[in-house]
Write a protein that binds this DNA or RNA. Structure first.
Length: 278
DNA sequence: CCTTGAACCTGCGGGC
DNA sequence: TGCCCGCAGGTTCAAG
């Protein structure tokens, strides 16, 4: 479920519930996801949560002893917070109980997620983060920056913009959406984009992510993303998942174009509409 | 350094 | 009804 907007939405939900709460129970229903659970994960029991942050697609739960609980949702992870009595569901792998009785449940059918524990609050040097590019909303993420990074990249721009070492947060859905919004053919070699196109791409990435965050945020209630889906934003996808249908946001004639195209790049689906690009 | 492809894992829907 | 296939929002690793 998660690209940056979904993770951001989950973080916002957690931020309304977790800070200043003490963790009074840690239940591990298995010992690993993509990587083993920390051997000392149980030691977060008795600790109080200070703040919630996000870096790339990682959720950071800072603790009052200076350590950080790191959670990544992978492809299918969900974090829900419920005050109701916990009823175990399939694929609930980690359940934290808070001192107000609330339960934080990490459910992840495909188990591509991860849970880790860092010794510090500052994670810049942590192995998960050293290789990551800037946040898309960081002022470092500019057309000039992308030009430099794309210079040596012959890969398709769709793949390049999803490369987390260049810029973080853009996953398979928003890559298609941002490129459509910028009217850039996803098949083009990254290094072939001119400054004007790069500028449009930077703007499009920021706008798409921001809009999706707003839509996701609007669907929050008692849960941190109750259904684990994309909130309201999926109804606004212009091209993603719309093969053969009319794209949203350009005035192409579907009779003429055949609608949105789907191709495979890097083993994953890309959706695009080429009107106004040729 | 760059690129590609496979691997990790479960669930769902479509076709036969 | 069952079986097989392809597909799903991420990341890492090996090999060329």
């Amino acid at each position: 479920m998660p690209e940056l907007p979904e993770v951001e939405t989950v973080c916002k939900g957690l931020a309304r519930v977790l800070p200043n709460r003490k963790i009074v129970g840690v239940r591990q229903n298995r010992h690993d996801l993509r990587i083993p659970f920390p051997a000392d994960l149980g030691s977060i029991k008795g600790r109080k949560v200070t703040t919630i942050k996000r870096r790339a697609k990682y959720i950071l739960v800072h603790l009052d002893d200076g350590r950080t609980l790191i959670i990544h949702l992978g492809m299918s992870g969900q974090l829900t917070v419920s005050k109701k009595k916990y009823a175990a569901e399939k694929h609930d792998h980690l359940v934290l109980t808070l001192d107000n009785g609330a339960q934080v449940v990490f459910n992840d059918p495909r188990r591509f997620g991860l849970v880790a524990l860092a010794k510090t609050k500052d994670l810049a040097q942590h192995k998960f983060f050293t290789h990551l590019g800037p946040e898309p909303f960081d002022k470092k993420f500019t057309a000039a920056f992308l030009a430099e990074k794309f210079k040596s990249k012959k890969v398709a721009v769709k793949l390049a913009i999803m490369d987390q070492t260049l810029v973080v947060g853009v996953g398979n859905i928003y890559a298609s959406e941002a490129l459509f919004s910028a009217r850039i053919d996803p098949r083009r070699a990254a290094q072939s984009l001119k400054p004007e196109a790069l500028k449009k791409l930077v703007t499009a990435v920021r706008n798409i992510l921001k809009t999706a965050i707003r839509a996701g945020g609007s669907s929050l209630r008692d849960y941190v993303h109750a259904d684990g889906s994309l909130g309201d934003f999926q109804q606004h996808f212009a091209v993603y998942g719309r093969e053969g249908q009319k794209c949203r946001g350009c005035s192409c004639n579907i009779q003429k174009t055949g609608g949105v195209k789907r191709i495979t790049q890097g083993g994953r689906s890309t959706f695009y509409c080429l009107l106004k690009q040729e």
